[in-house]
Computed example of a mutant assay.
Amino acid sequence: MTLHSEVSVNHASGAFAVIPVLDLKDGVVVHARAGKQAHAGKRAEYRPIATPFGPPHDAAAIARAMLGITFSSALYIADLDAILGRGNNFELCRELGYIFPSIDLWIDAGFSDVSDCAFWLPLGATLVIGSETIASLDAWENIRGNFASNLVLSLDFDEQGLRGPEEVMADPSLWPDRLILMSLGRVGTETGPDLARLHETLARAGNRAVYVGGGVAGLDDIAKVAQAGARGVLAATALHSGAISQKEIAALVGKRRSQI
């Protein structure tokens, strides 16, 4: 059995996963890279990515490289145009689905109600519902009632706290089986994940799978998230910069597998 298949089986069995993230805007791969101006999380300011994995117009090449490094059976795609309400990258996402038929696409497209979700259903993808774009508690309950098995709820936080209906955070009975704890202000910063909020969320999540997004800088951060009891992390910046290597991910995931 190859290393790739060993880790893939591990992911499929529900163990820890490192899920690569593609941000799409205007048909190309873009990236948040925070610097002195602290633009992280401001999606309109994302620029075409500079990465050793391929040119920004070749989303498939970049995705292939990231999937190879992480051994992931899922690929998170954030359609920034859809999130910003100025079109979408549906056809590009469809193409990626054809190229990677065995990969579970997690699509974040600014879903606010059932009609938004229904538009993307032909892709057969997992729908990531960000709390920041949920129109209301009623809208969320309607989405959850119609698409529960295909959903991941992203609890989106900024410096002021949760973005979205407070009732969704207050009542764990409203949560689906999979959650993302997303620190929007840490995206692209490599300042580390919000471990305090992670511990609080895990304590309330029961048996739900919790994934962490925003601020992951390297192997130490991933190890801390895994040790806390989360199911995985979303990674982009640390992969493009080379801060996390294929060997490190394989070793970490393999170690977690041996402890199951």
Rank of each mutant, 00 (worst) to 15 (best):
G218Q: 03
R197G: 03
G213H: 10
V225L: 08
N207F: 09
P56C: 10
G213R: 02
S73T: 15
I19T: 13
L3N: 08
R64V: 11
W175N: 09
H11C: 11
A203Y: 00
V210H: 03
G130Q: 01
D108K: 05
N89C: 04
G242S: 01
A74R: 15
L198V: 13
I249N: 03
A148N: 06
A15H: 13
V253N: 05
K247F: 01
Q37H: 15
Y76Q: 10
A59T: 05
E95L: 01
R257K: 07
H240C: 05
E159G: 06
G85D: 00
A139L: 07
S154Y: 07
K42F: 14
L179P: 12
V210I: 14
G185W: 02
L195C: 00
D113W: 13
A251H: 09
L153A: 07
A235L: 15
I99Q: 08
S136W: 03
S8A: 12
S245P: 11
S258N: 06
S241M: 04
W140N: 08
Y98C: 07
G213K: 00
V21G: 00
D104N: 15
D171L: 06
V152P: 03
I107G: 02
A228R: 10
A78K: 06
A65T: 11
I69C: 12
L239G: 03
E91H: 12
H11E: 10
A243D: 12
V225G: 08
S258K: 09
I129S: 05
L22R: 09
A209L: 06
P176E: 01
A118R: 13
V114C: 06
L92Y: 06
A109S: 14
H31K: 13
I143Q: 03
G27I: 09
T126A: 05
L121H: 04
F90H: 11
T51G: 01
I83E: 02
A139G: 04
L202I: 09
L123V: 03
G35Y: 00
I49K: 08
D104K: 11
F157S: 10
V253T: 09
V128L: 03
